[in-house]
Every structure is written in C-alpha cells, then in structure tokens.
Design a protein around this nucleic acid. Structure first.
Lengths: 142, 142
DNA sequence: TTTTAAATGCAAATGATTTGCATTTGCAAA
DNA sequence: TTTGCAAATGCAAATCATTTGCATTTAAAA
C-alpha cells in the first residue's frame, strides 16, 4: 500500500495500469523488462497495452517510483520498484539473474573523483558480473 | 601499430575494415557508437558498410581488442579500444561526454561480495554520473 | 453529475541492430 | 606468384525494442 501512497503523492493519476505495474515490480525479486511485465499482466488477465506499459514505466521513472537499469549484453531496459535506497547489481552472466546488493564500496570515492575531475557527481551505478552458485555447479558438471 | 599486432595475433584476418575501425577507436578519446564510427569512415572516404561495422565490432569484442559499454539513457551500444587496463566511466548527463577513469575504488569488495553471495565474480562495471565542468558553468548561466 | 486533462488502446513508425545470401578478399599453401 | 578456400563484406531486408500519433476512455476535481 505504500506504493499507492507514493503514487498518489507523486502527482500522477492513480490508474489501474500504474497500480498493476507497481504491484508486479514490487512482487518481483529482480528488475524486469517491459515485455516481461506485459506478459505477467496477461497471465493475470489484466488487459494493458504494451505501449501503455512503456509509457507507464516512463512516467513512474520520472516520478522516482521506479528505477531503470541497463545491463551489458541485454538490449532491453530493465525496471524495478524504487525502494529508495542505494543499491548495486550482481549479475549472473549465465542465467542472467540479477541480485540487488545494498552495501556500497565507494566510500568517499565520488568526492575524491570530483576533486580530480571537477565534475559534479550526482550518482553512480555499479554492476558486478560473474556466475551464481547454481551456474557454477552447472558449468562444473558440463 | 600495436593494435595491428594484436589483431594479427588474435586469429582474425587483418582486413581493411578492422584496421580502419581500430584506428578510429584508438584516436577517439571516448567510446563510440557503431553509427558514429560509420560516419567517421565516411568522412575519411573509407567505404565500409554499416552492417560490416556492426559485425567487425562484434568480432573485435570477441577477441578482446574492443570493449563494449552500455550507458544508461543511451540506447546504443558504445565501443572503445581495449587498452588492457581496468577502467571506469564518468558520464556527463548533460553533454553525454564520457571520461575514462583508471583508479578503482573497490579494493577487496569483489572478494567480500563473493564470500557473502557465493558468486564467482569475474568483473564489474562502474559508471559515475554527473555534470562536467563545462556543463556546470553552462547550467549556472541559464 | 459534469467536465477536462491525463491516460490508454491501437496500429504504425522509428532507430539500432541483425541476418541471409551472393560476392569479394586475406592469406596459407603450393 | 598463383590458387583455393573460408572468412569477411556489401546489400537489402528483417527483426526487435521502443516510441509516436490520434481517437477514445478514464480519474478525479469541481
């Protein structure tokens, strides 16, 4: 219900599409592509047009209810419910599973880099790639 | 000439396309999209098909002569000559300029995360976003 | 209940990338 | 130097993810 609260407070209308899409992203344990969301909606007999899914994700992103991430070797944009906390992504290069990681190893690095480059840094995205436990075992037995 | 050496040693044929594309990436101070490379080739009157640029980049990437990066809010794949050293990317969200950064703030973080998640981590990509000095000044005067 | 702007459905369009196939080319072998 | 052949390329079309235009529907304020 917190997401509906945030939706109401966002200035956007509280539409069926938005509630449904937020709900799916909240229930998902990893970022999803627009078409994946669309397929889940279909499974749940919620008729929403794919173009609406794209539009809705963009609206929600603009209001910070959703964040967009971009994984190398995946052409698609991925979206997740914005849990309002800093996070990184651990990606299995075999099964493509994405695990969110909370702790940030950067410490004061952004500040240090600002001093060196005269950039005004507002954020970062860190993706770590490797093989998950399952795929390690699978690969070892092949 | 080092790149031609690496190309010869890569097992790929040393074709005109490959030499030309590597040369352009080496001369560029930041990662480039396939179409940008294509346009520079055109400017230099080097007739190479756009589909060949795509194919060539993929071949070169497969042989680690080139690396592919993916910046949020840029649909395109970006490519750069693989200087064979770890690096991160500092991206200006206004002018989209990308600056390569050498030092890595992660320290032993990958190892720590491996212990926590039982992943076998093989690498990471770090993108820092902000405004460059030029765009800070430009934005301040608008 | 009405009104209205935002949201949506629909179909088409767009742009980045990939693909199939005929032809050309790099280069190893003779 | 020539030859043969698999890799590479040009070309045009196809594919896929995403966006767009426009008519209709809907959320919510009045």
């Amino acid at each position: 219900m917190e997401s509906e609260e945030r939706l109401k407070n966002s200035g956007l209308k509280t539409t069926k599409s938005r509630k449904a899409i937020l709900d799916i992203l909240i229930r998902s344990d990893q970022p999803m592509a627009a078409e994946q969301i669309f397929l889940v909606l279909k499974e749940e007999q919620i008729a929403i047009n794919l173009s609406t899914v794209y539009r809705t994700l963009e609206s929600l992103e603009n209001k910070d209810l959703v964040t967009k991430i971009s994984i190398l070797d995946d052409d698609r944009m991925l979206f997740e419910y914005n849990q309002l906390g800093h996070r990184h992504y651990l990606v299995c290069i075999s099964c493509k599973k994405i695990i969110t990681v909370q702790n940030c190893p950067l410490g004061t690095y952004e500040k240090t880099l600002e001093d060196e480059t005269h950039f005004n840094i507002i954020g970062h995205k860190l993706y770590l790639y490797g093989n998950c436990e399952d795929c390690q075992m699978k690969n070892a037995s092949n």
